[in-house]
Amino acid sequence: MSDVLLARFADCIFWLARYVERAENLARILDVNETFSRDSRGGQNWRPILQLNSDEKRFFATHPAATAQSVVKFYVIDSGNPTSIISAIRYARENARTLRPLISTEMWVQLNVFYNRLAALGEDDLLPGRLAALFGIIKEACQTHTGITEGTLFRDQGWYFYQLGRYIERADQTTRLLDIKYHLLLPSPSDVGSPTDVSQWNALLRSAAGYHAYRRLHTASTTPARIAGFLLLNQAFPRSVHHCVREVSQLLSEVKSRYALRHGNDAAEELDRLRAVLGTLDISTILSEGLHEFLDLMQQQLNAVTRDLSIAFFGYSPEASQAQTATPQ
């Protein structure tokens, strides 16, 4: 194929990557909530996950209460819920089906098999004793996808748009992971620094696969500020917001120059601003000005980047791209 890429295919491959990344992170968030959600009396609170995804209204329209079982079912196997893991993988597979001329057969087959496997899950598979293993399987299938993509996807324009989607989604998801913590602590900010608090922060690090890296950096001390700083600002941690934003920015400038793409300057400027913020602010400033507000701002700016890319490369009109970042392709 020549070095042109259909705008529609760029859109599809960007979202293919995002949906798989989203599914992986949702599995991570649900997994870690098992630990988080237990209060001092051992009860569980799954409501923050609903808040995190702004899904409360939809959830309570069909469910009387946010029990562990109902929330997990809603987010894992409920194909009527567009923000569930099975929906994300279904959208990924739909995009992959459209993209079959572009992607490797192995990428397609793995997603097809993955989806069929999720579609075969029933409520029995969501019993408390089986959940950790199930989340493990889902994470691993997403990582298998990433590995197959790394080893088989031809590195032309399509690859760049795939990577752009992957890193934007990952940055967005890391802000959400941090935000869970915020939501949970919202009623009683005085808990900050208590023993429960520290173990929850450790669980958060583990869910982002950042525990060991963090330990190597900060041998003894686990403070919420350092952990939040690590997840947001560390330049070497692959899931940190700063790392992801830098990747996005570099990928964009590379694809623009290599393929002489004229558009996309708005997104590039947006990313420059984001990098400047992440490169100059320190975590104490962020915390003192409000972590939640900062995370919100990051999410808005990442949405703005997506909107700019959609207009510049995917053929969206500025009006149509308004609603598009939140809705499935």
């Binding site: 042109v4 760029a10 558009h263 995917f314 053929g315």
Partner: peptide, 9 residues
């Protein structure tokens, strides 16, 4: 023409 990331082709 087809609509591509680089414009019309």
């Amino acid at each position: 023409f087809m609509r591509t990331t680089g414009g019309l082709s």
